[in-house]
Structure formats: C-alpha cells, structure tokens
Design a protein around this nucleic acid. Structure first.
Lengths: 211, 211, 211, 211
DNA sequence: GATGAATGAGTCTTCATTCAT
DNA sequence: CATGAATGAAGACTCATTCAT
C-alpha cells in the first residue's frame, strides 16, 4: 500500500521509479536491494521516496502486486479452463502462461520467483496476506471434484497434487524459461509438453496399473 | 576452500565456528548473514576469521560442502539402487533420504534448500563448480538406459525428467518436511508416497494409454 | 506569536492542533518533538502548519503561553493573598495551586516543568521575554516589605528566598505530584505541609535562635 | 559500560573523545547530541566510535559516570561529616562542594544537572541503576537518626527533607553558580549561606514555635 | 488561505575487510 | 598464528522547511 502520493505522480515518474525498483530487486533480491541506489538511479530525493512508500517492504509489496496483476492477465485463459473443470487442460495452460510471462517479462517473473522461494514466513504473509492459502484451497477442491468424476486416479492425494502443481508452475517455468529465452517459443513448448505428459499420466485415472 | 589454518584448528573450535555459521546462515540467509555476528557469537577474533576463510563466500561454500557430504551419507542407499538400475526405486529412496535428512538436520537442510533457490548463477557456479552439471548428466544417462530397457515410457524426455527429479528431491522434501517435523515419520512417509505414485505413474512404461 | 491565521481557525481545529502539540511535547520534549508527527496526528496539511506557526519554536512558545494562562487561573487565590501581604500564606497557596494544577493537567504541568529545566538561556528568554525577571522582582519587593514589617527574619536574603520559592513551586510540585496522582488529594496535601513547615520555620522571624 | 577498546586507547585519544563528548552533551543535551558531530570533531572514524561505545546512551552513561566520580571527590568532605552524624554541617558542605564543583568544571556540572532534570524515568534508571534510590534511602535513615537524637524537629518528614536536600544540592548549586562564576568565591559563599540558614532554621529542633 | 509534494542534509548504526602488533 | 582496533562507505529512515498550485 504505497501512499497516494505515489499514484498521483505523473506516469513518467511513476514508471521511472517502478522500473528502477524492478531493476534493483531483480539484480540484488529483496534483502540486498538498496533504496539509496534506487533514488540515485531515478534522481528523486530520498525524502521523496519515503513520501511514496512506507519503507522498503512497501515498495517490494507494490512491485509484487503489479507483477501479480500482470501474471493474472497471462493466466486468464488457464482460469477460464478452471471453470470448465478440466484440470489437465488447466495445468497445461498454467504452465504455458507461466512460460509466456517469463518470456515477455523475464525480470518481473524472476522477482516473483524469488519471492516464492523466500523462507521467511512472516514476511511472506505480511506481503501476500492469505491469498496464497485461498488459492491453494480452491485448487484442492477442484481436484476433489475431478476425483469424484473419475478423471483423476483415486489414490491421488489432493493437497499433494495441489502443491505439486503450484511448485511446478513457479519453479519449472522459471527453470525452462532460461533456456526458453534463447530457444524459439515452439521449442520451449515442446519441452513443456514433455513435463506435462509426466504429470498427466501420473494423475490420470485411465489404465492405472493395479497397486 | 578455507585456508589450511582452519583445518589445523582443534576440533572444538572448528565445530564452534561451523555451528555458529550454520546458525547464522539459517537465520539470516546468505545475503544478510553477518560475519561480525558470527565472530561475536563464537568469541573468536575477527582477524582470525579472515585467517580461516577468504571471505563470507568462502565460509558459505565450506558450509555447503559439509552439508553436501552429510546429505551424501543419507542418500547412499539411493545411489546403491542407482547401480541396480531401478530408477523408480532410486527416486523413492532419494525422496525418503531427503526427508530423513531434513528431519535429522533441519537447519542444514534449510541452508541447502536456500542455496538451491538462489538465482545468481555466477555465485552458484563459483560454489558448486561443475558438480551439479555432472550429477545431472549422470542421471540423464541412467534415464536413457531405462528407456532402452523399456521401464520408462518412450515419450519421456530424459533431461526434463532429470530436472524434475532434482527439483522435487530438494523442494518437496523441504516443503513436506515442515509438516513432517511435527508428524510421525510414518505419517510423513505416507504423504511422500502419494507424491511418488504420481511421479512413478507419470513415467512408467506400463499400461500407458495410447497418445 | 503564532500567525493570525491560527487564531482565525475554527475552535475545533485550533484545539485539535493544540492538543496534538501538547501530546507531542509531553511525550518527546522540545528537542525531539516532531512537526511531521504533529501534522500526521492532526491530519492538517504540513503547509498549513507553517501558515499557523513560524516554526517549531513558535508552536512551543504558544503552548507555553497557554499553559501559563491556565496556571495563572489556578494561582489566582495565591496572588490575592499576595495583596494581603502574608508571604507564608502566599507560599502555601502557591504550592497548593501548583499541585492542584498538576493534578488537573498533568501533561501541561510537565511541559511547563520541562521548560523551567531547560538550560539554553537564549531559548528561554526568547520564549518568556522578561516575564520571569519581572515576577522575580515583584517577589523580592514583597519579601522586603515583609522583612520591614518584622514577619521575616532579618538575615534572610530576599533574592535568595525569591529564587527558593520559585524553585520549589515548580520542581517540588511536579515531584510530589507523581505520587500525588495516585494518592488522594488529602494525602498529597499532608506531604506538602511537611515541606511547607520547613520553609516557614526557615524564614519566620519568631523564635529565631541567635546567630 | 564502554567496550574495553575504549579503555585500551592511548590516554590522548581517550581524552580527546571524552572532551568532545562533554562539549557535545553540554552544548546540545542528550537528545540532540550527534555522534556524527563527535566523530567529526575528534577525527576518529565513525566505525571506531561504535567499537568504543555500544551506542549514544553508552557514551552518555560513561560521561555521567566520570562526572559522578569527579563530583564524589569534591563532596568527600561532606560525607566525612555524614559519619559525624551532623546533618546540618553535611548539608552545608554538600552545597559548598556543589558550588565548588560547578566553578571548577562548569560543563560537567551542567551535564549532570541536565541529567538530573530528565523526565524519562526509563532512561534514568537504565543509566544510574538503583544508585539514586539507595543514596536517598541512606539519607532518610540519617535524618531519622537525627530526629531521634533531637537535632531535627519532630514534625519534619524524613523523605520530604531528603528530597529537598537532593533537589537543592543539584538545582540551586547550578543556579547560583552561574552568577558565582563571575563573583568571587567568597561572594558566592555568602549567597549560599543565606540559603543554608533558611534550610537550617527550617529543620532545626531548637526554639521551634509550638504547632 | 489551504495544500501536500519536494527536498537533501541529517539521524544512528552495521558492514566486510585490512593491518599493525 | 592470533589478535582486535581502525576504517569509511553504506544501510534504512526522519527532519524541518519551502513553494508551486
């Protein structure tokens, strides 16, 4: 929650600051990001920075929120599938949108990835609120419905699968995107496909060998 | 590569320093770990520290190497299976040993996990050398052999699977271990089993629905 | 001397500002009081503050003046006695009114006490003008009259006694008031009486042992 | 409790720092004293300062302790009287030594005076520990003994008198010392005498008018 | 007359590292 | 080889005040 001051800024200046912050968090991570460097890069006065943001954490939160918004645009398609109740297709689109986001905004995606990897639980909750927990619950319920309808094998544990998907959509996307940045998008998609087949076969109800 | 002076230290002092370093990296992470705090905690002279280690990175590297060694002990069983060429069993044991390690040395495991999550590629290569790359290559070859012998589905991409396994053995272990710390080990293993079944079914050659 | 803008303010707003200032000076003292905090607390614009007051000192001066006025109301009785030319009774009422003021407005009394304790002579004169000196002179003359009329021992030095009384009415009042706040007023008065007897006996002309 | 580092310093440097601190606290008071200014004045590195002292409070505490020690030397005579159990004489010497100390070290005396006037009770206890309370108790007991032996009037309340003496020895000394600095010492002593007579007569048992 | 953004010097404190003893 | 003092740049953050709107 940056101060209104920040949002009243002319778009030019606001963008300048935002981009300097992105640059900084991308290069140094949250812990080592320096507000002094940011104000030096942007040319604003240090006092002004603190009129825009409560503190470093506030800036970080803002950057992550903006990133979250942009990511949401990319994954809109995936969530449309969610409503169609087709998990496999949803997961596929989630991964694809993850890669696409990374290709379009590698720095933003990296910052989001770094945040996801933070261990400090206090900081994380302070920043995301309960959003993460809610999204997880939602996924679990979807999986349960798919088990009932027989599309997912009965021995799949919903929370485990929800975690697995969440993990993969963040980490793997970032991981493959590194090479994907140089590859053509087509090439990257093939790689993703290979991973997806593993997941799909892993959870599909059909042809499951007796255990 | 700590200086020889460090290894010539009486075991007591060496351990004292090592444990203070572990404590510090666990609590603050690499970026925010403070050498001043470490020497204060141990009571050694600051000058001495720099006679043992080149710098903060050198200490970090050392800690990670020791952790790596301890982890290797835990996963020795898994690697014996590797020689038996049974990937599914290997992966299972890898996960189990990951959990066991976390349960036995949660701080060490956390530090290793944090390192795995670092983005800075320069630092990572500087610290692990090519070990990671070599281990990955080895795994890929194993997977290829299993594909040839028909135990793994032909549409599985070996590098993708190798990455997936590496990811999961680090992240998922840490993730489930948190709750596993409070659960009984038996309970934790059940959760792990659920994840493993997904992976196993995802890659197994048997009963694969035609694609 | 706040700007006229301040006095033209609706009483509500004026009081809001005044009380926030009192709160601030009470909690942090003059040196550490923060105008930023005051405007934040009151919700007025920072620019507005500087349209009401010249600077921090100006606000401080205003607060002290208001406090002085309120104190005057409490000590009106004492000064009526002054006209009756009975110093002992005057001093007694001065102390009592000091305590009563503290009990009624502990924060205001504290701020006044803090000001009295300031060493910076420039600041003090800037703020009180010559009021202090005049009040002192007045007291001295009173004491001299009482010496002439034989109610005060001839070996009492008027300026010294005037200072002593001024000191005690400020410091002792504040000092005993701390405990007085919890005690009943009756109890506090007994304590004050004990102090007063010392002063009275110290200066009374009667029964003075030859020196 | 400055760090040993500070006491290991060559006397020259230690004195330089001490005097710069005295200068700073004298001129600006505790709240506004600036460590940056102190290190600039002395030419030591800012990092070095924090190797000598924990923080600003630590420096302040040290300065006050040194001052306390010096004051003790001045008031040694008064405390010899304490053992002779002659309160009146003790008080007299206390005042005289207070004035003498102020004349000899006006800045030190001022700093001590400022501290005595601080309102923040947390800070005060943090700095003096229970020394103040103990000294007060001691005085009270002395007064009680003198009442029993009939040297002090029975209607004197010991805690009240103890507070009064403590007050006067700090505040009045400082007050008169300002003018005393310009007067000859002889002249200053006459002024003090006048104050002392008031106190002495106020508490003496002899010739007390019946109440 | 009200506003509130801009300012940049200022605050205390910690940092990793060097080096003389 | 141990020591621990010295360093000064850097850290996040606050300040009183100005001024254009």
């Amino acid at each position: 929650m940056p101060h209104p001051t920040f949002f009243n800024l002319p778009a030019d200046k606001r963008n300048l600051i935002f981009e300097a912050a992105v640059e900084e968090f991308y290069e140094f991570g949250y812990a080592k990001a320096s507000i002094s460097r940011i104000v030096a890069k942007t040319g604003i006065a240090k006092g002004s920075f603190y009129q825009y943001f409560e503190d470093k954490k506030d800036l970080y939160r803002h950057v992550l929120e903006v990133i979250g918004g942009q990511k949401a645009d990319f994954s809109a398609a995936a969530f449309r599938d969610l409503e169609r109740n087709d998990l496999l297709q949803t997961v596929r689109e989630l991964f694809v949108s993850g890669i696409r986001f990374y290709r379009a905004h590698p720095k933003l995606a990296s910052i989001a990835g770094d945040f996801a990897k933070l261990r400090d639980p206090g900081l994380k909750r302070e920043i995301t609120g309960d959003a993460a927990a809610k999204s997880n619950e939602f996924f679990i319920q979807l999986i349960e419905r798919q088990k009932e309808s027989g599309r997912i094998a009965p021995d799949v544990d919903p929370p485990v699968l929800a975690d697995l998907i969440a993990f993969l959509s963040v980490y793997v996307a970032e991981h493959y995107a590194d090479q994907a940045l140089s590859d053509s998008e087509e090439q990257a998609m093939k790689t993703i496909d290979s991973l997806l087949r593993i997941v799909e076969n892993g959870i599909a109800a059909t042809n499951r060998s007796g255990r």
